[in-house]
């Protein structure tokens, strides 16, 4: 199953994303989709602030946009971002875990369409959005990395993911980009980290 990295963050997320994306190699092959919680009319600053530190092209998703390799896709304010086999889809369904965009919605749709190819990353944040999504990725045999709650700006969200799912690694923020790059170099999930998808 083709790989896709999905990243979720909330309070403190902008700074964390800038650290993570600055360290992503320009040749990183997999697409990356990001949900950062933000205000509903706040659609101007996030993409430029991420692009300025990142070698990969960053853009805000338009409905039914194809999921191009090596691109970084940001969920638009006040829309859920979902993954389909043919591309991204958007929705204005009610907030999930008090959030729109919701990390759970992105992660669960990534798990359903990419199965073992889904790689979830939960960064700093308050609340519990992303915990159910991380669990869904693990149930379908994907991989989940979580920022160490003890050193995150806000530890609740990564902590909730660790409590809800058998996550693969808990890492310092600075170690996440190298870990993703290593996974991509191997071209697949390493044997030791690959779970049996098991019965649904």
């Amino acid at each position: 199953m083709a790989s896709l990295v999905v990243i979720g963050c909330s309070l403190g997320g902008l700074d964390a994303l800038r650290v993570l994306l600055a360290a992503m190699p320009a040749e990183f092959p997999w697409p990356i989709a990001i949900v950062q919680h933000r205000g509903k009319n706040d659609d101007r600053l996030l993409v430029p602030l991420l692009q300025e530190v990142c070698a990969l092209p960053v853009g805000e998703v338009e409905d039914k946009q194809p999921i191009a390799l090596g691109h970084i896709f940001v969920a638009p304010a006040d829309y859920h971002l979902l993954v389909e086999p043919a591309g991204f889809a958007l929705s204005i369904d009610p907030p999930v875990s008090y959030s729109r965009p919701s990390i759970d919605v992105l992660f669960e749709s990534a798990a359903a369409s990419r199965r073992t190819g889904a790689v979830g990353v939960i960064l700093t944040g308050t609340g519990e959005d992303g915990a159910a999504g991380a669990a869904a990725i693990k149930r379908r045999g994907g991989l989940v990395l979580v920022q160490d709650p003890s050193t995150a700006t806000a530890g609740a969200m990564p902590g909730a993911a660790i409590a809800a799912a058998p996550v693969d690694r808990v890492l310092q923020l600075e170690a996440i980009a190298p870990a993703l790059a290593e996974l991509a170099r191997e071209g697949r999930l390493p044997e030791a980290l690959r779970d049996d998808p098991g019965p649904k």
Binding site: L82, V83, D93, S109, A112
Partner: peptide, 9 residues
């Protein structure tokens, strides 16, 4: 209809 939203619903 778009399948991802439909599946959630």
């Amino acid at each position: 209809y778009s399948r991802a939203s439909l599946s959630r619903r």
